[in-house]
Design a protein around this nucleic acid. Structure first.
Lengths: 224, 224
DNA sequence: GTTGCGGATAAACCTAAGTATGGTCCTCCC
DNA sequence: GGGAGGACCATACTTAGGTTTATCCGCAAC
């Protein structure tokens, strides 16, 4: 079902090559789009329904989804909502033959990359796909960083997490010690442990990690 | 031209009360919307054209703009583009009697809050306005913080800016000194000056400011 | 019941950071 | 040509941050 570069020895499929998923109940549309994407060297996988798409095992490369707004059984908009609720944030490009403005607004508000009316120009679709893939690439990059940080943070003991929060908030060791009712030396030891476990090379490093993790701001940032 | 709470002694106009701007060439639409917003206690100002709106002096409160897509002379979409280009980022809610999907997509991609088709329900408009005002409030808050930081950063000498970059990147004083070819003591002095000028209460504080200012990342953040 | 781990602490020690005080050398501007 | 401000540096001192080694307690798993 996956087509595209896979067939070409000259441009072997790379694990990082993006994939474009197409869901449309009309086989001719699927074929046309698959051909279009293949013609520009994009890997493609097409499905006749949302259900079929969900059967496909998730891939670990940047990808996007081309969706007809009027799918059999589940509407494109509802499917978009389903995916979002399920935590699947693949960028979506909608196609429609007879959509209306409220549908469009709903789709765009929910984060759709584009909403194309049939018939559309090939170039418009390709532009939308380029944007979508790029967006997914960024999203994946951020998600990977966040996952790594969370994994590291999860190895911290409760006490260490508490100390990390206070330290990155800007408190001195003695203040942290007073705050949690322990000796300053204890804070220092926790702190060293935190730096190791988080693999932070410096305090600014740790502060940035805390920011990404959304840990205790306040402290006394820039005032109005 | 500004109406709404201003007339009521019980709910005196506050400098922080948001304002809803309406641009429509149809006076009856302007009146109807003004009445609607006034009925829920929102200040309003209505205009017959984009030009008139621009004559109005900018206000310093959260606001949003209700725009008919088909304006005389300048289209709503073009006006949106003009505002964006001019650095005016007031949230926009579009209305249309006969818009199409490409228009909608363009407007939403450009950041419109909503795109309502006439006739719309009052409540839909009010919901959109609530969202838009909230969005503007957040935008203004962030802009204010950024402006303050930039103002403080502007008082730094070139050397101080350089030191701030390196320090917030996680380098030790001696490393900074080696990097820029001065004695460590000099770095310390710059550093103290930086903390004073930026009114940073701690290094984490300064790091967060640097983040907001978009100053020299790198350093060695979380690896993959 | 012993082992392991989180948590706390102490002593000793070392490095890093920060703050005067005082001074030199520029350059730009009035 | 005198003053202001930026950049630089030295000495001296204080405080903050961080590591190592070792000990102690409680609790849960084996």
């Amino acid at each position: 079902m996956v087509t595209g570069r896979t067939a070409s020895p000259a441009t072997r499929a790379n694990a990082e090559d993006p994939i474009v998923f197409v869901i449309d109940d009309d086989a001719s549309v699927r074929d046309a789009l698959s051909n279009l994407f293949r013609s520009v060297g994009l890997r493609t996988a097409a499905f006749g329904s949302a259900h079929e798409f969900l059967q496909h095992k998730p891939v670990d490369v940047p990808s996007c989804l081309i969706l007809d707004i009027r799918l059999p059984r589940l509407s494109g908009l509802d499917f978009q909502a389903e995916l979002t609720k399920a935590g699947i944030h693949i960028p979506i490009i909608f196609m429609t033959g007879h959509g209306d403005i409220p549908m469009t607004v709903r789709a765009m508000k929910a984060g759709a990359v584009d909403f194309l009316t049939k018939p559309f120009r090939d170039q418009d679709m390709l532009d939308a796909v380029t944007t979508a893939i790029e967006r997914d690439r960024n999203r994946r990059d951020e998600a990977r960083v966040l996952a790594n940080l969370r994994a590291a943070f999860a190895t911290l003991t409760p006490r260490e997490r508490q100390v990390m929060t206070l330290v990155t908030a800007g408190l001195m060791n003695k203040q942290v010690a007073a705050e949690i009712g322990v000796a300053e030396i204890t804070v220092k030891i926790h702190r060293g442990q935190i730096m190791r476990k988080m693999t932070a090379k410096s305090l600014p490093d740790l502060v940035r990690m805390a920011e990404i993790l959304g840990i205790g701001q306040a402290s006394g940032g820039p005032q109005t």
